[in-house]
């Protein structure tokens, strides 16, 4: 009930913010652009629209995750609204969980609307019913949940600017972790090898959530893979939130 109240309040906070709408506007613009681009390009029109649209949905989702995610806690601290919350019969982790779920709800709404618009655009412009693309959308959502949890974690102990930098870095490294392993294999010094291998195993491999290429080119993705990827994401979300809660519990709200 308390977590739900915080989540709903966070949902309202984001939904009533103009920045959110400008981001959604740009994401929609990309969907529109993809239709024009497909008309100008040689090749399968449907695949180009699918490629561009999925990338657009993913990128703007990440921007919302990072830039709204880092503000979830820091805004409450900066505006001191947190004083009235923590002085109520609520545990600090409940507050944190509520904030997270609120943004998760916003992202769910964002991704549902975007997907619907995307499928309608695809259907009207090419006559293709893109239901087969839904698994890719689902894993984009899982990736957004992981990135949001990371943004929340960073914002419990650092400034918004630093949090954004850390989260962005995590996102980029997360897509390049296979390179980390390759680098570890080539590294000369044992210590460098150990550090790189540690990073490879500790950081989430966000490429696991990227099946956009596969679904667009009709490469089958099994249910087992979907479950594994979702489980992998859930593990990271839990770990990141747990760490965030531990840090948040110790904080003094000066």
């Amino acid at each position: 009930m308390k977590v739900y109240a915080i989540a709903v309040n966070t949902f309202k906070e984001v939904i009533r913010d103009k920045i959110f709408y400008s981001l959604v506007f740009f994401a929609l613009l990309i969907l529109g652009m993809s239709v024009i681009m497909s008309a100008l390009t040689v090749g399968e029109r449907a695949k180009i629209i699918e490629d561009l649209s999925l990338a657009g949905i993913s990128i703007f989702g990440i921007i919302i995750s990072i830039f709204v995610g880092i503000g979830l806690v820091s805004k409450e601290l900066e505006k001191k609204t947190i004083y009235t919350i923590i002085s109520k019969p609520i545990q600090r982790y409940e507050f944190l969980l509520g904030k997270y779920l609120g943004l998760a709800l916003v992202l769910l709404a964002y991704i549902s609307v975007m997907t619907l618009v995307f499928l309608v655009v695809l259907l009207l412009s090419t006559g293709v019913l893109g239901v087969g693309l839904l698994p890719a959308v689902l894993l984009i959502y899982v990736e957004l949940l992981v990135v949001t949890a990371a943004a929340l974690l960073f914002s419990t102990f650092s400034t918004p600017t630093l949090s954004a930098t850390y989260t962005l870095a995590l996102y980029i490294i997360g897509h390049l972790t296979s390179d980390l392993k390759g680098l570890a294999a080539k590294a000369g010094a044992e210590s460098a090898k150990a550090v790189l291998e540690f990073l490879y195993y500790a950081l989430p491999n966000l490429e696991n959530f990227n099946i956009k290429g596969k679904v667009v080119h009709d490469v089958p993705v099994g249910a087992a893979y979907m479950f594994m990827a979702a489980g992998y994401g859930a593990f990271y979300v839990c770990a990141l939130l747990l760490l965030a809660a531990l840090i948040f519990q110790k904080r003094n709200f000066k």
Binding site: M1, E13, K80, T84, I85, K88
Partner: peptide
């Protein structure tokens, strides 16, 4: 019940929503 110094509140809420929210925190 607690009122902080120079309180800032969720300015995107209406007064009714605001009190409703705090009521929910008390279940």
């Amino acid at each position: 019940g607690f009122l902080p110094e120079h309180p800032y509140f969720y300015d995107y809420l209406t007064a009714n929503e605001f009190l409703d929210f705090y009521g929910r925190l008390f279940g």
